[in-house]
Design a protein around this nucleic acid. Structure first.
Lengths: 337, 337
DNA sequence: GCCGGTGATGTTAGCGATAACACCAGGTCG
DNA sequence: CGACCTGGTGTTATCGCTAACATCACCGGC
């Protein structure tokens, strides 16, 4: 008839093991000065009671939590979603819980609010996935002293940042097309205010210029298959277009459809390269040559940078870049004739 | 020259406002018995100091956190990712932080471990996205008394559960094909151990049987475009196949490619319907008719069910189902001749 | 005009951990 | 051989909050 007894606390373990609660604490925190025999006795008691330390109490006294806050946009775009997933896994493996604050739009106000919610929770550090300039601006509101890492953010800012090397990936993709024999390469870009898109434009332009080819105007779209389709409708009408580098795979998908509708065969008439290597890219018509970013590596670097800041307060190398890899498939061929 | 002063605590606010810390606590928790004038003075002091309550201290004394733990697979499958995103937003709006525990594989051991990590954190409630039987099995390990909601889980289990009405969506999709005049409808299914896949098979079969048509054998695949392609290669060779319902859009994508390679035009020769309405489905070749689940609604129901359990300890209606909607596009037409 | 009720506030006692220090036995060293 | 270190342990204070109870002024009713 006893009431639901509360969870066991450290003193309960101590009593069972015949030691003081402080000794239990020492065992839990791997302090060196505990006799082996005592340690074993305490561990047995812990197991017997199914004791689990109260994180709130620990956080209260140490002033630190084992929580990392992430601010991300509420979208299912492949890149950000993959990144988030990879980061959650990496952080979990390192013993940190990840609290995700979703934001509907990437404006300064929303992001600042999300950051504040995390600070309310006393997170040990914050990661902001800030792929647009409006998002990056919000970081100015974060007080110094909060460990903070930006992912996919503004390369021009001094804050710790991890990104995929967009320019390098775009350079490789474009060069791959040029090496197939195309006179030049057109580019369908993501939204101009996204750093990822800007980096890819830059890498594309560098490759075209390096080959001494003419630089066609950038066709700006958003990330959707829909806008890729519209861009494709235009480009399909231009016979001089024989090679297109799309800023992501979904743009490429839309473009493929437009080409197909206009009777321009890929890769026979037009070659196409995407970016992201979404899982289904190998099953587009035709299978899409694309660039694969290593999201797991980005996640590892991000976590590393954050943990450095958490423990040391500072960071040695606050800017890290992860190189992507070209994945050749069937959407690239030499130009016609 | 003063050292980095610690964050302001309740007593600091109290001192500034000229009241006791308990009055500050009352203001914070909206207790009725506080004079309006006092309330204002305290609020001003809170603002001036940029005071934020220490959640660890509160959690320590109340024994409750404002944290919800979610267990999800480490995948970027569109359905689960959308669900997670929607849930994070809904929970955030309700003032709860969401801690995500990712799991590499959906086996009993991994899921139990993830649940334990959440219990260590003393989460107020747990949501498990458990779309396979192996995942559902793990729920047996969760002790009673922990508020728990399963999403996409086993309809046969008594635990609180929210799911999309897979069978209804599949029934509608299949009926849509039959009404276009097809003699029967073939089905490419997701993995057999996924409840979503099983539900869609069931709805499909019911629709075919209801029409008095012959029920073809189920073609079982996984969720990937790759396996849809393989299924399509087989089905494309069979002239009697004029209508296919695919268990998700990516399967349909692969199947479309196989059909195209074999010269079977969609929708002229073969009609196809998918499931999920991924954003790019409108830009497949041809735009794909599909079924759209309402993930936001699933998230709302899940949160509601969980909050009920957290506050009341029990739940009135522990099983909720959200109806999906058919989205007609261009991949369905009457059969040839 | 005294009494009990009520609204506004203050005081005190924990919640469950860690930190800092106290203590004690036993070994080392000048 | 007494002073001193050192490894193992216990004791006490403390983190910032809420719950429970104490206090006090003021009200209306008999």
């Amino acid at each position: 008839m006893e009431k639901t007894s509360r969870d066991p606390a450290m003193t309960d373990v101590a009593r069972l093991a015949g030691v003081s609660h402080q000794t239990v604490s020492r065992v839990l925190n791997n302090h060196p000065n505990v006799r082996e025999q005592t340690r074993l006795r305490v561990q047995a008691a812990i197991k017997e009671l199914d004791y689990r330390p109260n994180r709130a109490a620990r956080a209260l006294v140490t002033g630190k939590t084992q929580l990392i806050g992430v601010v991300a946009q509420n979208s299912t775009l492949y890149g950000p979603a993959s990144l988030l997933s990879a980061f959650e896994e990496a952080a979990g493996a390192a013993g940190f819980a990840v609290s995700v604050g979703r934001v509907k739009v990437l404006d300064r106000e929303s992001i600042s609010a999300a950051v504040e919610r995390h600070r309310d929770q006393r997170v040990a550090g914050i990661v902001v996935i800030a792929p647009t300039s409006s998002a990056a601006d919000a970081l100015a509101d974060v007080p110094a002293g909060v460990p903070l890492v930006t992912v996919d953010g503004d390369p021009g800012r001094p804050t710790p940042l991890v990104t995929v090397d967009q320019a390098a990936g775009a350079f490789d993709a474009t060069t791959h097309l040029l090496e197939a024999g195309h006179r030049t390469v057109w580019h369908v870009s993501g939204p101009a205010d996204w750093f990822d898109a800007a980096g890819r434009v830059q890498g594309w332009r560098r490759a075209v210029e390096a080959a001494g080819a003419e630089v066609p105007p950038v066709v700006t779209a958003d990330w959707s298959a829909s806008s890729g389709y519209r861009a494709g409708q235009m480009l399909a009408r231009m016979p001089e277009v024989t090679a297109v580098f799309c800023s992501n795979d979904h743009l490429a998908l839309g473009l493929l459809r437009a080409m197909s509708e206009r009777g321009r065969r890929v890769p026979h008439d037009v070659s196409v390269v995407g970016f992201d290597d979404v899982p289904e890219a190998a099953y587009f018509i035709p299978p899409l040559t694309t660039v694969r970013p290593d999201f797991a590596a980005v996640a590892r670097e991000t976590l590393g940078l954050l943990l450095e800041q958490i423990s040391d307060g500072e960071t040695t190398r606050p800017r890290r870049t992860v190189a992507p890899a070209l994945v050749p498939r069937d959407s690239v061929a030499p130009p016609p004739e």
